[in-house]
Design a protein around this nucleic acid. Structure first.
Length: 132
DNA sequence: ATTCTCACA
DNA sequence: TGTGAGCA
């Protein structure tokens, strides 16, 4: 199931379309690219072409901005996400150690505890992006 | 008509 | 971030 990922990564929208979809100015969209938050492709005419993934990120950035988070903070958020993904990928390549087993058991216990206390299943776990 | 880069009364 | 210039 990564045919879907492939499509979402296809750069097919010119900046004008992205502007309408995100309600951001071209200036802002290019600035966020400068900040490494998105990496749109370029076509033969040096025109930026955005993917659905790029648009999703842009929308997220707009939300974070609306919540009062500055560029530095937003960049930190994506840097963290990258680091977490690197850890998960590293874990897949490395043979499981005793430490890993302990950690997994530990997480398992914590998760069961949450399930027993949170009937609705509302994972308050991921609502960690509040202004400092 | 659109987008790009660069610069700033 | 906005905006206008001069290109492609």
């Amino acid at each position: 199931m990564k045919e879907k990922e492939l499509r979402r990564s296809l750069s097919v929208f010119p900046i004008g379309t992205v502007m309408k979809l995100t309600d951001l100015t071209a200036r802002q969209i290019r600035y966020y690219e400068e900040q490494q938050l998105i990496q749109p492709q370029r076509n033969d005419g040096n025109r930026r072409m955005y993917s659905l993934n790029d648009i999703d990120v842009l929308l997220e950035i707009k939300d974070y901005l609306a919540e009062g988070i500055n560029m530095a903070g937003i960049k930190h958020i994506y840097e963290m996400q990258e680091q977490e993904q690197e850890k998960k990928q590293a874990a897949l390549k490395r043979p499981v150690t005793d430490e890993d087993v302990r950690r997994i058991f530990h997480d398992e216990l914590l998760q069961q505890g949450r399930l027993n206390n949170d009937e609705q299943g509302h994972s308050t776990l991921f609502h960690t992006h509040k202004p400092l």
